[in-house]
Design a binder for these strands. Structure first.
Lengths: 174, 174
DNA sequence: CGCCGAGTTGAACTGAATCAAGAAACGTGG
DNA sequence: CCACGTTTCTTGATTCAGTTCAACTCGGCG
């Protein structure tokens, strides 16, 4: 554990602070110890589309940019005052050398993220607004509580208005 | 290389053959040496939604089912006569023990899949039918050629009719 | 030759987006 | 601790991209 910590840079961020801006190269992978971050993309019309929420215990970064050094296509910023651990590309390589078990850990991490991404895709392909919302709050109730509704809408791929109406419908039903 | 092969079971499949059926546990991860497979989900209305195409050099499976032993939520079948290598969960573990470098390989594999999944999500969140189609054929021209159009539509999350019309529009423009 | 799956086209329909306006909740500085 | 501005959420009216349904064409294959 002690050895592990030497590869990481601890850091604190305020609400609304950028951790990564679109166009800059993504120098770090971020582990969230406390608080919540999000990654998102801004389209030509200025609409935000949330790719990921990262509460405590999650990792977040623009992996493609991190690995290739190309400019990031996402923004990452802070939703709730956060304490994080940063690791750079070289530090990561060192760490994997020094602690081979980490290779396995990272693989499993990637695997799990991959699975949840695949589910999300299957879900957006097969289901309508309402069902998608229900699915999300069923799987991530904790996130649903902590995040403003319009961000949830953005994550789910619908407008805030639509989500508002969906929830209204659901209230009637119950 | 020789050692590697001992962990895998080679197998040939015909067109339209199932490699995995929804509801069965996914016992193998499949590496495609030749041909093409696909994974997809069937919704309540009987519509297929393609999750992944796997041409030569790609891996395919229902990772969640494979890892947890739960019934698969996808079907996997063969689009073009295929030669594949199968690996079971225990063989995989053995292999990772015997050849630690594979741990790294698998991590990178997962990482790359994850990146492409993330892109796909960003893409479905931000873009319309036409742009999504263009993006796909730009990134995977080889797949676009080999796959029937209605499957492409299914992958892109639109009806065959819509894709047909999109392509018609594009012809006019050029 | 006849059938069948794949693709195209048209017309009607619909779920969700957009535009616009107002209400409620929030937090920040005086 | 209140007041003001900002952010969040809601609601209604209108519009639109894409779906659905149905009919028709084309090319291959038994």
């Amino acid at each position: 554990m002690e050895q592990l910590k030497t590869f990481f840079i601890p850091k604190k961020y305020r609400r609304k602070q950028y951790v990564l801006q679109q166009g800059d190269p993504c120098k770090y992978i971020v582990f969230v110890e406390k608080g919540m971050l999000r990654s998102y993309q801004v389209d030509d019309k200025g609409n935000e589309h949330i790719v990921q929420f990262a509460p405590e215990g999650w990792w977040i970064s623009d992996s493609y940019s991190f690995l290739t050094g190309t400019p990031a296509s996402y923004d990452i910023d802070v939703l709730e005052e956060a304490e994080v651990l940063l690791i750079t590309q070289p530090a990561m390589e060192e760490m994997l050398q020094a602690i081979p078990a980490m290779e396995r850990y990272m693989r499993i991490l990637m695997q799990n993220s991959l699975i949840s991404m695949q589910r999300r895709i299957a879900c957006t392909l097969t289901t309508q607004a309402e069902e998608r919302y229900l699915g999300f709050i069923a799987e991530h109730p904790h996130i649903g509580q902590r995040v403003p509704q319009h961000m949830l809408a953005s994550f789910l791929g619908m407008t805030p208005e639509t989500l508002s109406r969906v929830r209204k419908q659901l209230l009637k039903k119950s």
